[in-house]
Amino acid sequence: MLKKVLESRMKIRFHDCDPFSHLNNSRYMDYIMTARGDQVQEDYGLDIYKMAKEEGLGWVSAQTQIAYMVPAYLMEEVVIQTQLTAFSGRSLSVEALMWNEDKTVLKALVWIRLVHYQLQMQKSHTHSEALMRLFKQVVSPLKPEMDFETRVKDLKAKVSVL
Rank of each mutant, 00 (worst) to 15 (best):
M121D: 15
I66Y: 02
P19W: 07
S88H: 02
N24A: 09
M29F: 13
I80A: 03
L155Y: 11
S26H: 07
I112P: 00
P141Y: 06
R113C: 09
A67R: 14
L97E: 15
Q81F: 03
V60P: 00
P19I: 08
K123I: 10
H125A: 13
F135V: 03
K53F: 09
V152Y: 07
V152A: 01
I80H: 02
K11F: 11
L74H: 15
V78C: 05
Q65E: 14
Y68S: 05
E95P: 05
N100T: 10
S124E: 06
K4S: 15
S61Y: 10
E149N: 15
Y28W: 15
M29A: 10
K156T: 02
L119H: 06
G45M: 01
K136S: 14
Y28Q: 05
M1N: 07
V40M: 11
E101Y: 08
V161Q: 13
A157T: 09
L106E: 00
Q118V: 07
Y49W: 13
S88Y: 03
I80S: 00
D38K: 05
T150H: 07
L114V: 10
H116G: 02
D147Q: 12
V105D: 14
H125Y: 08
M51T: 12
W99M: 02
P141I: 04
P144R: 04
A35L: 12
A67M: 11
R36T: 09
A72E: 09
L162D: 15
A96G: 01
D16M: 14
K156D: 03
S21Q: 12
L106F: 04
V105E: 12
R113T: 15
W59H: 08
Y44T: 08
K107A: 04
G56W: 01
L109H: 05
V161F: 10
Q83A: 12
V138Q: 02
E95R: 08
N100P: 07
L131M: 14
C17L: 08
S26Y: 05
A72N: 09
A86W: 00
T82D: 01
S128V: 11
D30L: 12
L23M: 03
K50H: 13
S91R: 14
Q83P: 00
P19E: 00
V94W: 00
V105L: 03
E7S: 07
H125R: 05
P144I: 02
I32W: 09
W59G: 02
R151A: 04
A72F: 03
A52S: 12
Y73M: 09
L142H: 03
S91C: 08
T82M: 01
D16S: 14
V79M: 04
L2A: 13
Q83V: 06
T82P: 02
K11S: 10
G56F: 07
M1V: 11
E76R: 06
M29P: 05
L119R: 01
I12Y: 01
P144A: 02
Q120R: 11
K143W: 00
W59V: 09
T85P: 03
Q137G: 10
E149Q: 11
V139Q: 08
I66Q: 05
S93M: 06
L57S: 11
K11V: 14
E54A: 12
R27L: 10
V161Y: 13
Q83W: 06
D16E: 15
G58P: 03
